[in-house]
Design a protein around this nucleic acid. Structure first.
Lengths: 131, 131
DNA sequence: GTTAAAACCGATTGCCTGTCGGTTTTCATT
DNA sequence: AATGAAAACCGACAGGCAATCGGTTTTAAC
């Protein structure tokens, strides 16, 4: 999977403002880039076709919203670039960590460990209560 | 940055066998794909131009080797694909972890925590010894 | 039904990978 | 130095995809 620059900006905006029409997106993006309304329209449509956006009609226009959460998309993207270099059975995230860890500071390591702890709790809960 | 299929295969092979010539690479890749020698040559050259390979002449031919470690490349790729979605100071990996954590089992969590520990040691070392 | 708004279609450009054939360069050997 | 083989290099082309936007069709509000 690969996303172009415009597509990324569109997604970024939709995460912050779900349920907006092309005009709004275009107006907002005007701060960052100089694309015609039609160009933005095309990007929206491409993303919609890719399944990354949903839309519903209201009056004349469609209201778009991101169908995928930011973190999920990041995870997907990481997987798509890392998986080719990761042998089966290995988690691409873990491989990725080996790669990126050197750029992480203590605060980030703390944060990650915290998340791991939360996940451990989840696992425990699942162990005892689930069927 | 984006790498094509052939380029990935070439890199993969060069990590396992550094310092080989086009002929060798071509012969090896013949197991996976059916490209002409020239095609492989082009891929090598493109990767070289991208700075991902180095080469030195020996006799007629160049011997190629990967200039970037696997993990470093993964890190780069992750960066290129996720950076736009991640604000400064945030780690794309941590964002991704939020999404993937639910699929990780205890062994993987252990492994990850272990890697975190290693990284903490690295940070400490850097703290005290660096200028 | 008219009309304005928005969606949709199609064409074009630019970039990149993969694909090779053919030419030039290089180098070892005589 | 001449020559011939080996390899590098050049140039061209196909295919895919994002970005671009003009122009036409559809839609819905009044």
């Amino acid at each position: 999977m690969f996303l172009g620059e415009l597509e990324k900006q569109v997604l970024q905006y939709l995460w912050s403002s779900p349920g907006v029409d092309v005009k709004r997106v275009h107006a907002e993006l005007a701060k960052q880039r100089d694309s015609s309304l039609n160009t933005v329209q095309s990007a929206l449509e491409r993303l919609f076709k890719k399944g990354l956006l949903s839309r519903e009609k209201q009056g004349h226009a469609y209201l778009y919203r991101a169908e995928v959460a930011r973190n999920d998309l990041i995870a997907k993207l990481i997987d798509s670039v890392a998986s080719d270099f990761v042998s089966k059975g290995e988690s691409s995230l873990i491989a990725a960590f080996s790669s990126v860890s050197t750029e992480m500071d203590e605060a980030q390591l703390d944060r990650l460990e915290q998340l791991i702890e939360i996940q451990r709790q989840q696992l425990k809960k699942g162990d005892s209560s689930a069927d």
